[in-house]
């Protein structure tokens, strides 16, 4: 009764069917549809009929020359720089403190829980909460500033370009530094403990260990966080939309919000929005390719090292064999 001939391989295919079907319908088809719409004249609320344009790239040219689109890209860069640099510096500092062997910090668990907390709260709620907190003339922040004597009169934070950008960046910083810290700590815990023991034996101080052992070994994780955060910044929607709707004067307009504005307000230009989506897609694809390259590069480098070691061992073995033969 041995059923050696039974092959289970077909179940591999069968169990993947739901995933593949859902992906084809809900992901691939809309992607193709969006690509097609980028070359058409589809606009107007409730319209679904479209014709291809005589000049297929007309929408792309219009979008690339659109000052709001250009502004949305530079805004993404600005917002990203002012939130990511302090975010990663603080996360690194906390990582150094929390992973130090010589100085045990008590209450790490509760600190991690509190630092990460803003990340799971609804972004829509946080955006409105902050626009209320920074309200004019009598929001809590203005109240605090005047009580402490930091400002003479109420400041209209929401209607000035740089304060609005500063607040949006601060929200991003505040929501994400805990995440970055936890990822970095888990990166440090994943490193070979011998590295740290060796540094300690060599008499390195905590700071030296961190700068010359920990950070170089975290390079890949740091790059990964950096790029995923940039991609996240391009897609940021809820916060700028509900904070000041991209304002004041487009100062917090992100690419995602630009696309939404093109398609679902004004003259409902689905075609332009599609073209802009494709441009965003290309940018994200390039950034993702960089991540892939970095990750693969690391594996390849490790493989090379291993190969080298093996070759060396082989050489020694051959030598030893030769000696034995002689």
């Amino acid at each position: 009764m041995r059923r050696k001939g039974v092959s289970y391989a077909k179940y591999g295919y069968i169990f993947c069917i739901p995933f593949v079907l859902a992906w084809l319908i809900f992901s691939l088809y809309p992607t193709i549809y969006t690509t097609v719409l980028g070359f058409t004249d589809l606009k107007g609320s409730g319209k679904t009929e479209f014709h291809f344009l005589a000049n297929p790239f007309e929408n792309y040219v219009k979008i690339l020359n659109n000052p709001s689109f250009q502004q949305s890209l530079s805004n993404t860069a600005i917002l990203w720089i002012i939130n990511f640099i302090p975010q990663v510096l603080l996360a690194l500092l906390l990582t150094a403190w929390f992973t130090n062997h010589r100085r045990k910090i008590k209450g790490q668990g509760i600190f991690k829980v509190l630092f990460y907390m803003p990340n799971i709260i609804t972004a829509a709620t946080i955006a409105i909460l902050f626009s209320t907190l920074f309200g004019y003339p009598m929001g809590p922040v203005n109240d605090l500033f005047m009580t402490l004597g930091l400002s003479d009169g109420p400041i209209n934070f929401l209607l000035q370009k740089w304060t609005a950008r500063g607040i949006v960046s601060f929200i991003q910083f505040w929501m994400w530094y805990g995440y970055t810290m936890i990822v970095l700590i888990s990166g440090v815990l994943g490193l070979n403990p011998e590295l740290f023991e060796a540094a300690e034996i060599d008499g390195a101080s905590s700071a030296q260990t961190f700068f010359f052992v920990t950070i170089p070994n975290l390079r890949t994780i740091l790059l990964y966080t950096m790029i995923t955060s940039l991609i996240g910044g391009l897609q940021m929607f809820d916060i700028p939309k509900l904070f000041q709707n991209g304002g004041p004067d487009n100062a917090t307009l992100t690419t995602s919000l630009f696309i939404y504005g093109q398609a679902f307000s004004g003259s409902y230009m689905y075609n332009r929005a599609s073209a802009a989506s494709m441009l965003l897609f290309i940018i994200i694809a390039v950034l993702s390719a960089i991540i892939f390259y970095i990750m693969r590069d690391k594996d390849a480098a490790q493989l090379k090292k291993q190969e080298k070691r093996q070759r060396k061992l082989l050489k020694e073995a051959v030598k030893a064999a030769g000696r034995a033969a002689a």
């Binding site: 809309p30 992607t31 193709i32 939404y260 398609a263 689905y270 965003l280 994200i284 993702s288």
Partner: peptide
Amino acid sequence: MIPAQITIIGYFQFIYR
């Protein structure tokens, strides 16, 4: 790596139809 945001126009039109 592909975010849902970039397919939103096609998805909306598809569901609307």
